[in-house]
Amino acid sequence: TSSHKLRLYERDDYRGLMSELTDDCACVPELFRLPEIYSLHVLEGCWVLYEMPNYRGRQYLLRPGDYRRYHDWGGADAKVGSLRRVTDL
């Protein structure tokens, strides 16, 4: 099985509160109590970021690497509604 891990930060450049995720999350704002995510670091696996909860809205593919600001993943703003692991490519 492949492993997945990413870290979410409330501010750009990996500042502020950090939360780690290793499984799908249908509602990021509810789980982490963060209305917006300004940076993230994908440590393992690929993920799909959705701008709205319950895997809706615009989708962004996140490969392992650094995303210091939301425009690094192509986002128009810092809204992160849900995240899902990519298990098949």
Rank of each mutant, 00 (worst) to 15 (best):
E10F: 06
L31W: 14
D13W: 05
Y60W: 08
K79W: 03
Y60K: 03
H41G: 03
M52K: 15
T87A: 12
D66A: 08
D88R: 06
R58E: 08
Y9G: 01
R11Q: 14
Y38A: 15
G81F: 00
E51A: 09
M52S: 10
P53I: 02
L49Y: 03
T22W: 05
G45Y: 03
L21M: 08
V80G: 03
Y70P: 15
Q59W: 10
L31V: 13
M52Y: 12
S39M: 04
M18S: 14
P35C: 10
G65S: 05
K5D: 00
D13N: 14
A26N: 10
Y50D: 01
M18A: 09
L21W: 03
L61R: 13
S82C: 00
G81D: 00
N54W: 07
L43T: 04
V42W: 00
Y70S: 08
D24E: 02
T22A: 13
D12W: 11
G81V: 00
P64L: 02
L6S: 02
K5T: 05
R33L: 13
Y67G: 02
G45K: 02
V42R: 00
S3I: 10
S2T: 08
Y14I: 04
L17F: 12
V42H: 02
L62F: 01
T87R: 11
W47T: 05
S82Y: 06
L83P: 02
S3E: 09
L8S: 02
L8M: 14
T87D: 15
D66H: 15
R56G: 11
A76D: 08
V42K: 00
I37K: 15
A26K: 12
A26P: 10
V80T: 00
V86M: 10
A76Q: 15
L6F: 02
E20I: 03
D23H: 08
M18F: 15
R56M: 12
L21P: 02
S2L: 11
C27P: 00
H4I: 05
H71D: 07
S19C: 08
K5L: 10
E44Y: 06
H4Y: 14
V80P: 02
S2W: 09
Y67P: 02
A26R: 12
L34D: 15
R84M: 12
R69D: 15
V80Q: 04
H41E: 11
D66M: 10
Y67T: 00
L8C: 06
Y38G: 12
F32T: 09
R7L: 11
C25A: 05
L83H: 01
P29M: 12
L6T: 02
W73G: 07
W47L: 00
E36T: 14
N54K: 08
D23M: 06
S39R: 03
G16D: 07
L6D: 01
D88G: 10
F32C: 11
H41N: 11
Y38L: 13
L8R: 01
Y50E: 00
R85L: 03
Y70E: 08
S39F: 01
C25D: 13
D24M: 01
V86L: 10
T87Q: 13
V80S: 01
V42D: 02
C46W: 02
L8N: 01
G65E: 03
T22F: 05
Y70L: 06
Y70Q: 08
L21I: 12
H71L: 12
R56T: 14
S2E: 10
H71G: 11
W47Q: 00
M52N: 11
P64V: 04
G16L: 06
H41A: 10
A78E: 05
P35T: 14
L83Q: 05
V48Q: 09
M52F: 14
W73N: 12
F32A: 14
N54T: 01
G75Y: 02
Y14V: 03
S2F: 11
C46D: 03
T22K: 14
L31Q: 15
V48P: 02
G65Q: 00
